[in-house]
């Protein structure tokens, strides 16, 4: 698996910078955005495999951001990470195509596993699209 590219979206700077450092130490390329708006503009330049998305942010909230990510970049996987437990938003997020729903405080190993799994899913979906396209052409 090639190097994973991750975008962390959370308005808590302390949190994101700590996670960013720890993930970078594990060989991941990590960028940070502090709002939903910033996340969407980052994705235009930074080809993230997975977005780790806080649900509760000022401005554009997590679910809204998730919808936009999936609309503009359907192959990018999204992991919701929240400090505010809500079954309703968890279900809504997964209906919108989120890969996973994690609660803070998240264990780093667990987060890395989910990132790997999300990447795997992205690969599989890309591979399927490729194979179908080939099939169509042949």
């Amino acid at each position: 698996m090639q190097e994973m590219k991750v975008l962390l979206v959370d308005d808590e700077v302390d949190f994101t910078s700590a996670i960013q450092k720890r993930l970078a130490r594990r060989g991941l390329t990590v960028k940070v955005a502090q709002s939903g708006e910033e996340c969407l503009s980052s994705l235009e330049k930074f080809p993230a495999d997975v977005v780790v998305l806080d649900m509760k942010m000022p401005g554009m909230d997590g679910l809204h951001t998730l919808r936009e990510i999936k609309r503009r970049h359907p192959l990018v996987e999204v992991i919701m990470l929240t400090g505010h437990a809500s079954m309703e938003s968890a279900v809504e997020g997964m209906d919108q195509g989120a890969f996973h729903y994690l609660m803070k405080p998240a264990d780093l190993d667990e987060l890395v596993y989910k990132l790997e799994d999300a990447c795997k899913r992205k690969e599989i979906r890309e591979r399927k699209i490729r194979s179908t396209d080939n099939g169509e052409e042949s």
């Binding site: 809500s86 079954m87 968890a90 997964m94 996973h100 729903y101 609660m103």
Partner: peptide
């Protein structure tokens, strides 16, 4: 906080 987190996580995992 534990009760909510546990129920929510169980719900999310079941839904997945």
């Amino acid at each position: 906080a534990f009760v909510r987190a546990a129920c929510t996580k169980a719900g999310a995992a079941t839904y997945r």
